Amino acid sequence: MAGIADHYDDPIHIAVIGGTGLASLADFTHVANVKPSTPWGVPSSPIAVLHHPSPSTGKSIPIAFLSRHGLHHELAPHEVPSRANIAALRSIGVRTIIAFSAVGSLQEDIKPRDFVVPDQIIDRTKGVRPFTFFEGGMVGHVGFADPFDGDVGKVVRKCGHSLEGEGVRLHDSGTVVCMEGPQFSTRAESKLYRSWGGAVINMSALPEAKLAKEAEIAYQMICMSTDYDCWHESGDVTVEMVMGNMKANAENARRFVGAVLDELSKEEHSDLVLAKHLESQTKFAGSITAPAGRSAEAKSKLQWLFPGYFD
């Protein structure tokens, strides 16, 4: 594309992972496409580098944008190369990720087109998705009690509430049930997840959130409800229903994410954006394997991701 560079040399600290319903950020200046290769393969799409003016200084802030399912939505949820995605983002400097996802609602009060800022996850994937950087000769145990970043979540909630009354309705918390897919739930499963206290259901929160935690990246998902799953008397979920609600609410989704990026671009959030509160956590969590027991391949991969951590 004319005027779009194929490299970008400065570090990029904030990324948006766009899922179904958020394919781009139209009001940002697209300056580059980068295609980093990682020890875990290539990411699901080229990473678009977008310039965003800081609301406090006017200086251009670079934002990385990655399409989770590929540029043409060609990757099924279990095919998304999440390790490559997170590793590629960290390698270009990203320390904060705002992840967007379409979800089904498991609660009457979360209506189609509502937004949810979740705080917990229940894992219903089947173990077929690679979900850790620590394997093959190095063991690492990273805490995952709080799968989303509390401080970034506060910023996201503040921005969402600032848009209420302009078509945005926000729920401050909720548990995401992450299922395998690509089929939707059975009616029995949907009712079970409701009984567990699930708020919404998707196919994308994991292993993305786990890998971000291992990579010391502050990660927060924004969910947009598109349907009532199949438990509700309004009818079973269909692709047509999902796509229709996403299209109708796309502008609100872009405004919401744009407001979050505006706020995070302020200098007062610089330490948060750099995830200073997460620095070196993985260095200690990943040092459980004694140096003599670390395989050369595992050590090489982790040194690429965390230079200087496991020398």
Rank of each mutant, 00 (worst) to 15 (best):
E268D: 14
I98H: 07
H72K: 12
E164K: 10
I98N: 01
V155Y: 07
E208L: 03
P147E: 04
L106V: 02
H232N: 14
S45Y: 00
C230K: 05
G286F: 01
T282H: 02
G198P: 09
P62G: 07
S24H: 13
E135K: 12
G244I: 08
H73D: 10
G174V: 01
V103L: 08
H161R: 15
S101H: 08
K247P: 06
M241Q: 10
A285Q: 04
L302G: 00
N245M: 08
I12W: 00
A248N: 11
D123F: 14
S44I: 01
L278H: 01
Q183S: 14
H277M: 01
H232T: 04
E189W: 07
F284S: 15
V103D: 02
D27N: 10
A290D: 15
C178S: 09
Y193N: 09
G181F: 12
L206H: 07
H51T: 06
I14F: 03
H52Q: 05
P46L: 04
V168D: 09
S101T: 13
G244P: 10
Q120E: 13
D9L: 12
A209R: 10
E135D: 11
V42M: 13
S56I: 05
S44A: 07
R187F: 05
E135S: 10
A275L: 01
S37R: 11
D151T: 11
S82L: 10
P62I: 01
M246Q: 13
L272M: 05
G235V: 04
F310Q: 00
I222N: 12
S91H: 11
E135L: 09
W231E: 09
A199G: 13
H73W: 02
A250F: 07
D149G: 01
C159F: 10
N249D: 13
D229I: 14
C230H: 04
F184G: 09
V16R: 06
P46Y: 11
G136W: 09
V139D: 14
I4T: 13
A259H: 03
R95Q: 00
T57R: 07
P77G: 10
N85S: 01
I222M: 11
A15C: 06
W231A: 00
D123G: 12
K111D: 05
M241K: 13
L261F: 03
C230D: 11
K158S: 15
L302D: 02
F28T: 06
I92A: 02
V273C: 04
V200R: 10
I110Y: 14
D114L: 12
D9I: 02
I63E: 00
D109M: 12
G41M: 05
A199Q: 01
I17L: 15
L106R: 06
L211K: 06
A32Q: 02
V152H: 06
I14L: 13
K111L: 10
G21M: 01
G70E: 00
M179E: 14
L163D: 07
P62T: 05
R255C: 14
L66W: 02
A296C: 07
A15K: 05
A48S: 15
I222L: 15
A209K: 11
K154P: 09
E214M: 03
D151S: 13
V260W: 03
